[in-house]
Amino acid sequence: MKLLEISDLSASVDDQPILRGIDLNICAGEVHAIMGPNGSGKSTLANVIAGREDYRIDRGRIALEGEEITTLSPEERAHRGLFLAFQYPIEIPGVSNMEFLKAAVDSHARAAGEPESTTVDFVKMARSAAEQLGLNPEFLKRGVNDGFSGGEKKRNEILQMLMLNPKVSILDETDSGLDIDALRIVANGISAFANTSNAVVLVTHYQRLLNHIEPDFVHVIANGSIVRSGDHSLALELEEKGYSWLENA
C-alpha cells in the first residue's frame, strides 16, 4: 500500500528554488534512505513534506495514504500520521518534556475522536519509551531539549516518534551528533518501531546509520533532484566514492 506519494515536487525558500521535480513513492513496510551532499535539498524536502510555512511549494503534489496534504497545516499532517524528526531539535525552556509530549499525544487523540489518555497511563507509556532509548525517566521532567546534549536531543526526537506512532516518519539527520553507543540505541529504537504498516525515511549524509538499519531503497538527491535510486549497495558505493560522481553525472 502506498503511504506517501510525492510527484514532480518543486519548492523554494526565500524565492530560491531548492527542489526541482522530486518523485518518490513510499509503501507500508519500507525503509528508505535519502542521501546527498550538503545543500542538496534533503532537509528542505523533509520540511516541505511536514508543512513548514516559509517553504513554498511551486509545483507538484504530496499525498498521504492517497490524500493530497499540501494544503493542510503542519498539525493536520501530523494528525494524519506524518512525523518529522528535526535535524536541529528546538529548545523550549520552561515547557517540560512531559507536558509537551502529553499535549502532542492528546492532540492526536482529539483529532482521531478518541479519549485523551489518563495521566497515569500516559506517564507509564512515556517512561517505558524513555527506558527503551536508554534515557533516565527524570529526563521527562526537564524542559524540552533545554540543555540536552546533541545525543539526548536526537533520542528525544525518537521518543516523540514512539509516543505518536506515525505512519510515515521522516528522520532528518538523526544520526548526526550521536556517539557510537547512542547511534546503536537509536537505531535499535527505530528498527523496533518499523513494521509492515508504517514507513521510515532516513535522511542522512553518511552511511553509518545504515549499517544498523538496512534500507530497502536508497535515493540520492543532488541539486534538488533525485539523481539515482537503488538498494543498500548504493549507500556503500557512495561511502566509497563520495557524491561528486553523481552530482556531475
Binding site: S73, P74, E75, A78, L84, G94, F100, A103, A104, S107
Partner: peptide, 20 residues
C-alpha cells in the same frame, strides 16, 4: 512549527509557550 509538527495547533502552542 516544532509544536505544530507534533500535532499541537498554533493557539495551544502559543498558550503553552507563554506559560513556559
Amino acid at each position: 512549527f516544532y509544536f505544530q509538527s507534533r500535532g499541537i495547533g498554533e493557539d495551544e502552542a502559543r498558550a503553552i509557550l507563554i506559560k513556559g
